[in-house]
Amino acid sequence: MSTLRDLLDAFDELPQATELRARSYHDLGEVVVDVGCGGGRAVGELARLGARAIGVDRDPEMVAAAAARWPAGEFHVGDVTALPLPDASVTGYRADKVLHVVEDPAPALAEARRVLRPGGRVVLTGQDWDAIVVDSADPDRTRALVHARADTMPNPRAARQYRNLLLDNGFTDVTVEGHMSVFTDALALPMLAGMDDDRWFDEQADRAAHDRLLVAVPVLLAAGTRGD
């Protein structure tokens, strides 16, 4: 049975995920914090690029596993709204697939601004959970299931709010990019398993078995600069 870490590793190793991760590393500078670091892959990759890379996650077990797997990085247990870092201590702040689990992302952006040096860069990436595309024989049911699944999350539409969140919290030079992650095999099935409709899911599993599955996930990447 696959563990959460196994699934994260499988997604992280896809070419589209690798390319987007590399894109998110641009111009983060020499001291970078990766918030919600999970298994620590981004921290390890940033360290290999020459940065002092710091991973923060609220799950102690995940932090311990990340530290064992990526010894070149630094790892700490902490919350997105209370990072264990001094003021103005990093040149880059990265949060990937984090803000959709935060009820109110504004304090997290205020914390990002606190730890960034003036001129430091913030990068936010994440999927819009309310806009996932799934090919299905019952599009009305699919639309309802996607919306219902999104509504179980604290902030499923956080990604479409990234630009305004950055602007509202005093970041400048804000940019937004749209990317689409497309899945056509069984790797996407765990993402659909929480849709809570066995007959609908059985159709998707059958599509995967016969090379007819299509799931497309819109991912947004937003970046900004901390001004003085």
Rank of each mutant, 00 (worst) to 15 (best):
V77E: 01
G78Q: 02
D79P: 07
V80S: 12
V80E: 10
V80T: 11
T81D: 15
A82C: 09
A82P: 09
P84S: 10
L85R: 01
L85Y: 05
P86I: 03
D87Y: 13
A88P: 07
A88R: 10
A88V: 11
V90Y: 00
Y93W: 15
Y93L: 12
R94K: 11
R94I: 08
R94C: 08
D96H: 07
H100Q: 15
H100G: 13
V101F: 15
V102A: 09
A106D: 15
A106F: 12
A108P: 09
A110Q: 15
A110V: 15
R113A: 14
R114E: 03
V115E: 06
G120Q: 01
R121C: 09
V122N: 02
V122L: 05
V123D: 00
L124V: 02
T125F: 02
Q127A: 14
Q127M: 13
W129M: 12
D130L: 14
A131N: 11
V133L: 15
D138Y: 08
R141K: 11
R141P: 03
R141L: 13
R141C: 09
T142C: 09
R143S: 11
A144R: 10
L145P: 07
V146C: 03
V146T: 04
V146F: 02
H147D: 09
R149H: 14
M153A: 14
P156D: 07
A158M: 07
A158C: 09
A159R: 07
R160V: 10
Q161W: 06
R163K: 05
N169W: 05
G170Q: 13
G170K: 11
G170V: 11
V176S: 01
H179F: 12
M180E: 14
A186G: 12
L187M: 00
L187R: 03
L189T: 04
L189C: 00
G194M: 04
D196I: 01
D197R: 04
D202F: 03
Q204K: 03
A205S: 13
R207M: 02
A209S: 14
H210A: 02
D211G: 13
R212S: 00
V215F: 02
P218W: 10
